[in-house]
Amino acid sequence: MKVDPRCQRCGSSSESINHVLLSCPVARLVWAQIGFPFPPRGFEHRSLLENFDYLLGISTRKEVPGEISRVFPWVVWLEATVNKIQDDCRHWFEVVQAGENSKVGSRNLHLNGNRWRPPSAGKLKCNLGIAWSKGKSLAGTSWIVRDARGEVLMHSRRRAFSGIHSLLEAKHFGLTWAIESMLSHKIVNVCLEIEASELVGVVKRPKAWPAFRA
C-alpha cells in the first residue's frame, strides 16, 4: 500500500510515532503551551522509549507542579487545544475523587447489612456503581461481573462522562455503557443490578414509562 511517508503537519520526510507525538514542531508547540518541561536534549533528539521514560518519570520531580506532571497522557491523546487538554485532565481527576468518595458510602452500606446477593446457578451478575457531581456536571461509573459463587470474572476501569445534569442521566449513561460492555465482551446470561428504579421500570415495563421512551 503506497502512502505518503511525510508528516502531514510539518512536511518532514520521516513521520513516526515519536515524531507525531513529541518531536514535530506542531507537537512541540503544544507541549510548550501546556507548560510541560522539556528534557535536556529536547524530544527531537531522543528515541520514543527515552521520551516515554522521561514522561513517566516526570512526576518524581518535586519542582514540577502536579497539574503539569500528570497532564501528559491528555497531550499525547488529544494534541488539540491547550484549554481542552487542561479541562479533560481536570475532569478526569475530579471524577476519580468523586468515585473514591462513593466507595466510602458503599463500604458503609455493606457494614450496615446490605450485602451482595449472588445470581442463580449458571448465571452472572453485573453490578454498576455511579458517582455524580452536581456542581461540575460530571459522572463516573464502573461495573463488576461475578458468578454465583461471588468470584469476580471481569471488571471495568472507571469511565467518566461530562455534561451530565442529573443523577438519573448519570445512571442512564452508566447502564447503557454497561450493556454495551457486556455485548462487546460477549458476556451472556447476565443480569444487571443498579440502584435506579426508574430505569429498571423503563426496561421491564416500557409502556408504563412513556416519558422515558427516548
Rank of each mutant, 00 (worst) to 15 (best):
R90Q: 12
K134A: 12
G174Y: 08
H165R: 15
N51K: 00
Q86K: 15
R159Y: 10
E169I: 00
L128H: 04
E169K: 06
Q86A: 14
A98D: 10
Q86I: 12
A98H: 02
R149V: 01
P118T: 02
A160K: 10
K62Y: 12
I85A: 01
S156Y: 11
D53P: 00
I130Y: 02
T60H: 09
V95M: 09
T176K: 04
I164T: 00
L56Q: 01
W116N: 01
N83T: 13
R70V: 09
D88E: 03
K123H: 14
R157S: 05
H155A: 10
V64F: 09
G140A: 06
R158M: 15
E79H: 13
I68G: 06
R158P: 06
W77L: 04
E63Q: 10
K136E: 11
V64H: 03
D87W: 08
R146S: 02
P73L: 13
I68L: 07
S102L: 09
V82M: 02
D147L: 04
E50V: 07
A98F: 04
A131W: 13
V145T: 08
E50N: 06
R158D: 07
V104I: 14
N83V: 10
E50F: 00
R146K: 15
I144Q: 01
M154Y: 08
I68R: 07
G122P: 06
L167E: 09
H165M: 06
V95A: 14
E94V: 01
S59D: 06
V152Q: 11
V76W: 02
D147G: 11
K103V: 15
